[in-house]
Amino acid sequence: MGVLSEELRDQIRAQFPNYPNKRAVVLPALHLVQDAQRHVSIEAVREIAELLELHPSEVHDTMTFYQFFKDEKHKLGKHRVWVCRSISCMLRGGEELLQHMCEKLHVHPGQTSADGKVTMEFAECLGACDGAPCILVDDEAHMNITPEKADELLKSL
């Protein structure tokens, strides 16, 4: 038994019928592992590769292309909070909001708060420009965020 639980392996295998080959399951597998373990370790990469009948370097190549996936040196906190820094949010205070939230948690983007609860990130356009500035908590968008609302949101996590 490696770092992937049997349950996780079953969830990955359940994706196989959706695609004509196993390589297409790389992204779904990386998502499943990162959701469960808050990072994708090199050992997990090897085990995903074995399940998908790929060379570990193939899985690793895909994983590292998407900066979304984090290795053991950059473990994610319980929640991941993204603040949009692209044009529509920038025009309505997105960068100041990012600064406010980072100061609140004493972190830089990419870092996790001391209590392990929140990993702060900046994001490129989150596609919620009708509610700029917006933030994403895990994969749920929150719109028209003021510093006060951001504080409340952080408190609720």
């Binding site: 297409a24 992204l27 998908l52 895909t62 292309f65 998407y66 490129e124």
Partner: peptide, 27 residues
């Protein structure tokens, strides 16, 4: 119909980048 989630990369909106990504590769 299969729903496939990306991983936050703008290039996946380019149609052949999207295809490569769907195939499990860098986009």
């Amino acid at each position: 119909v299969v729903l496939h989630r990306g991983a936050a990369a703008y290039i996946c909106g380019e149609e052949t980048g999207l295809i490569e990504s769907l195939e499990g590769k860098r986009a």
